[in-house]
């Protein structure tokens, strides 16, 4: 009986997240279009609202090409790794008090583990495609992801020190419910490092060199077509949502808000996640791309020392005040 409720919850969560992913692509195109003083998709449905469905149907029916010299099992397996790891990390995110699928004591570490595994999908896709530029894209993406995992983790150590636990629900509870007690304010440096590392982990502009459309012909996903391509994109958007959720939980106070919404406790959580997604899209419309060596220099020479400084200052603060 309990298994049945868990399965039902998983199904509802999956359906909601996949719908969000589809409409995240739609809103990204619309918002970037309006920021560039043009309209986005307008033709399919009223103001283009059915565009994601049309895209989904198109991906379904496209021919599935596997290159002849490609490593077939790895080629077929790579998008699955990306998607599965990203979907698994949804299981530990609390959307409201008690609204979490698996309330484990190492929630934050679990999300790290899953995001470091997602990069496997990238590098295997690059390798298995057996093509020069794809492979380069995969290598670059992998190097970028493992370089930025460190500042990501270290920026959250400050939050762990302030809240005293890795359990995501405990982190939100220890932030209290007022505006000024969010961990954003004591951890401003940590938030900045987290935000930049988050952009790099999810391969978004300004760090999207691996999938740069103008340079590597869409990088490690060049040889993929149809549904597998759609799987990679789903994995990227789910990664964006998971990272936004972690940012909301750790720095912005999770599901707490000014007033209680009666029937829908995750209201403020979802609003904050939407705010993060808007930030992602806004930055994509504004900034140019970092060159590869600038990217690596930024990760190792700027963000890592900043994150360590943040840990040091937080530790100092905790010792002196308590």
């Amino acid at each position: 009986m309990q298994i049945l409720t868990i399965v039902l919850q998983i199904a509802i969560l999956l359906a909601i997240v996949l719908l969000h992913v589809a409409y995240a692509t739609y809103f990204e195109r619309k918002i970037i279009g309006h920021m560039q003083v043009r309209l986005g998709p307008m033709m399919v449905g009223y103001h283009g609202l059915l565009q994601p469905i049309a895209d989904g149907i198109k991906s379904f029916f496209k021919e599935d090409i596997v290159p002849e010299q490609a490593d077939r099992p790895l080629f077929l397996f790579a998008p699955v790794i990306c998607l599965v790891t990203m979907l698994t990390s949804l299981a530990v995110i609390p959307f409201a008090k008690g609204w979490v699928l698996a309330d484990i004591n190492i929630g934050l570490l679990f999300i790290f583990a899953m995001s470091s595994l997602a990069s496997y999908g990238v590098i295997l896709a690059g390798w298995a495609s057996n093509s020069k530029y794809t492979f380069l894209g995969g290598l670059r993406s992998m190097a970028q992801v493992i370089s930025y995992e460190l500042p990501l983790g270290l920026s959250l150590v400050g939050v762990m020190m302030l809240s005293g636990s890795l359990n995501l629900t405990t982190i939100v509870d220890s932030q209290g419910s007022s505006f000024s007690s969010m961990y954003l304010f004591p951890q401003l440096i940590g938030f900045f490092v987290f935000f930049v590392a988050m952009l790099a982990e999810t391969n978004r502009v300004p760090f999207d060199l691996p999938e740069a459309e103008t340079e590597l012909v869409s990088g490690y996903i060049t040889e993929y077509s149809g549904m597998r391509y759609a799987l990679f994109f789903m994995a990227e958007y789910i990664g964006m949502m998971v990272m936004s959720s972690i940012g909301t939980i750790c720095f912005l106070g999770g599901w707490n808000g000014p007033f209680e919404v009666p029937f829908f406790p995750p209201f403020w959580f979802i609003l904050k996640v939407y705010g993060f997604l808007f930030l992602f899209i806004w930055i994509r419309a504004t900034l140019p791309r970092y060159r590869y060596d600038q990217l690596m220099a930024l990760g190792w020479k700027l963000l890592l020392p900043l994150a360590l400084l943040n840990i040091f200052l937080t530790g100092l603060f905790k010792i002196l005040v308590h």
Partner: peptide, 15 residues
Amino acid sequence: GMALTLRKLFSPAIT
């Protein structure tokens, strides 16, 4: 730069 794009977000499109 981001303020500019935000301003343009709310201006009418010329398509």
